[in-house]
Design a protein around this nucleic acid. Structure first.
Length: 270
DNA sequence: GCGACAG
DNA sequence: ATCTTGTCGC
């Protein structure tokens, strides 16, 4: 795929103030409403934990063998080789099958700075996505989208760069306030809205994402799983973001596209 | 000044 | 993110 907003490339040589200004521009360009051409219900479940038949098969529905109509979901994740460079892996999935994998790499020029993650990892991600030949219907990135001080987290930055629908999936909350406390274990499937607080650029109370309990143990009192923190990147609403993530979480905490990109990135290290 | 902060 | 084995509980 191709960068369509090169003026938004995450140049790590900019000053911190320039980076933040760029993020405000990106947020102003981003759309946090549904604007894509596929049906979330057509996102086929990824590979199952076992050799069990897919959900559709076990219900006895006829599996459509025609390729090309099911949405292409692309998971993106990074791994690091010391402090020198990062590798980015993009794994494209359609109908629960891997249809393409792409790799990218870039020198690390910045330390990790909360709020500026895209300037540390962006180059490698762009490198990987530029070498991807299929056109993704939606990207699943590791990190925040709209849950960000200036509404321009990694998922928003990358989504706007390529003008492609994108969602962010994080394991921890960067900012914002959950409508309900997340301390106690949530039941599987639970969704808790994340509202903007005064550390953010948006009016207080704006729903900028959700905590989503993709998986939970039968007895959460003794051992429980933390919820995912999901937020829209670009061209997807907060609610639809959860729908997309839910459709790709197949028996594990993390979405299948993310897990596959994660393991591919690890392989790229050696 | 202190705390809080995706990966 | 990364350095790393076993271990507890489903």
């Amino acid at each position: 795929m191709e960068v369509v907003r090169p003026e938004f490339l995450p140049d790590p040589d900019r000053s911190r103030e320039e980076m933040e200004d760029l993020q405000r521009e990106i947020a102003a360009t981003a759309s946090f409403e549904d604007d894509f051409g596929f049906d979330v219900a057509d996102v086929e479940l990824g590979e199952s934990p076992t050799d069990a038949p897919t959900a559709a098969e076990s219900v006895g529905e006829q599996v459509t063998l025609t390729d090309g109509d099911a949405p292409v979901v692309v998971g993106v994740d990074q791994a690091f080789v010391g402090d020198d460079y990062s590798v980015s892996a993009a794994v494209a999935i359609r109908d629960g099958r891997v249809v393409e994998r792409a790799a990218g790499r870039a020198e690390l020029e910045l330390p990790y700075i909360p709020g500026l993650l895209a300037f540390r990892e962006g180059d490698a991600i762009v490198d990987a996505l530029e070498s991807l030949s299929v056109e993704p219907d939606v990207l699943v990135l590791d990190g925040s989208g709209r849950i960000h001080f200036r509404q321009a987290g990694l998922a928003t930055h990358v989504g706007v760069l390529f003008d492609v629908p994108a969602v962010g999936v994080a394991k921890n909350l960067l900012c914002g306030t959950p409508r309900e406390p997340l301390d106690d274990p949530l039941p599987e499937g639970a969704r808790v809205a994340i509202e903007a607080d005064d550390s953010m650029d948006v009016p207080d109370g704006t729903v900028v994402g959700y905590a989503y309990q993709s998986r939970q143990y039968p007895n959460p009192e003794q051992r429980h799983v933390n919820p995912l923190i999901v937020s829209p990147g670009h061209r997807v609403s907060a609610e639809t973001t959860v729908d997309v993530v839910e459709a790709t979480c197949t028996g594990y905490k993390l979405p299948a596209p993310t897990r596959l990109a994660d393991q591919y990135a690890d392989d790229l290290k050696d």
